[in-house]
């Protein structure tokens, strides 16, 4: 069926949101901010998926989004736990200071 809003719009919007998420990851120094930018990226991808699912009348897209949301939740949990743990030791979550793995 022909959607009311063409799928291209959704895809463009998704790309823009994704870009903004990428910029956030690259520019911000706060680890939590970076995390939130990652969430933004995930959402952008989800949006794109659902848009295409509707166009193709394929439930697969929506199901993938379902799983992505779940996994994003899991990831956030673990990631924030990590941040907490790091903060305890280093007393800072500025990622520029977290360069102990420097080669």
């Amino acid at each position: 069926m022909q959607p009311a809003v063409a799928t291209e719009y959704f895809v463009v919007l998704s790309a823009v949101l994704f870009i903004m998420g990428v910029l956030g990851v690259l520019v911000r120094r706060n680890a939590i901010m970076i995390f939130m930018s990652v969430e933004l990226m995930l959402n952008a991808a989800n949006l794109s998926l659902v848009a295409f699912a509707q166009q193709w009348s394929n439930m697969g897209g929506q199901l993938i989004v379902f799983f992505v949301i779940t996994i994003a939740a899991a990831e956030v949990a673990v990631g924030l736990a990590l941040i907490v743990a790091i903060f305890r030791t280093k007393k800072s979550i500025d990622i520029d200071e977290l360069n102990a793995m420097q080669g």
């Binding site: 990428v22 690259l26 970076i34 990622i95 977290l98 102990a100 420097q102 080669g103």
Partner: peptide
């Protein structure tokens, strides 16, 4: 070795 900067951001940049 200097590629491994230890900075996450550089890694992300590379990924991007």
């Amino acid at each position: 070795r200097t590629v491994q900067t230890g900075y996450v951001r550089t890694y992300v940049f590379t990924m991007l």
